[in-house]
């Protein structure tokens, strides 16, 4: 009989797709880091659902891991999707600034530089560095989303797949 195992891959891919795509779309990205968090929450939901159906334990570390993995997938998807959308995003930003400037006597400092950001020529070094750092930040946000997801979807007391976290009253500090 096969050993039941939790699979992080599919939940992380689904959460990462949400985080990566929504963060790249102009206007939707105005919701700050919420999409990175939402990707982690969504991934945790699917993992918790899968664990529940297979009667497997679901721990807070599972939420952290699947959220972080969703963040990594989200970063990769985000960077790839932004490539063809770069010019559209720049144009959207310029139109946004133009429409706002019609209602202002004086454009606040810093608004003009918004249109300059992103107008650089493509550089492979910066592309890879951007990908690496995006993976780091998206993974961090996704992991936080995983914690949020655990607080929402954690098994209720008495459920078969509940895992009792050892209560180390002495010192529960991280082993990092």
């Amino acid at each position: 009989m096969g050993v039941k195992e939790k699979s992080y891959l599919v939940p992380a891919l689904i959460g990462g797709a949400l985080a990566g795509l929504a963060s790249a779309i102009p206007f939707l990205h105005l919701f700050c880091c919420v999409w990175g968090l939402a990707g982690g929450v969504l991934a945790t939901y699917f993992l918790a659902d899968s664990a529940s159906k297979q009667s497997l334990p679901f721990k807070i570390s599972d939420g952290l891991l699947v959220g972080a993995l969703a963040g990594v997938f989200g970063a990769i998807i985000n960077v790839i999707v932004q490539i063809p959308l770069a010019d559209y995003y720049l144009e959207w930003t310029r139109r946004f600034l133009e429409s706002l400037s019609r209602f202002m006597e004086e454009v606040p400092a810093g608004w003009e530089s918004l249109s300059e950001i992103g107008s650089q020529t493509w550089d492979p070094f910066y592309f890879l560095l951007n990908l690496l750092l995006s993976c780091l930040i998206f993974a961090f946000l996704g992991a936080l989303g995983g914690l949020i997801g655990y607080s929402i979807f954690k098994p209720t007391p008495g459920a078969k797949n509940e895992t009792q976290t050892p209560q180390n009253k002495g010192n529960s500090q991280s082993s990092l």
Binding site: K59, S61, L64, A143, S151, T165, N168, S175
Partner: peptide, 10 residues
């Protein structure tokens, strides 16, 4: 909760 999760992983 971050450190609790990391403790569980370790």
């Amino acid at each position: 909760f971050w450190f609790q999760a990391l403790n569980q992983l370790c």
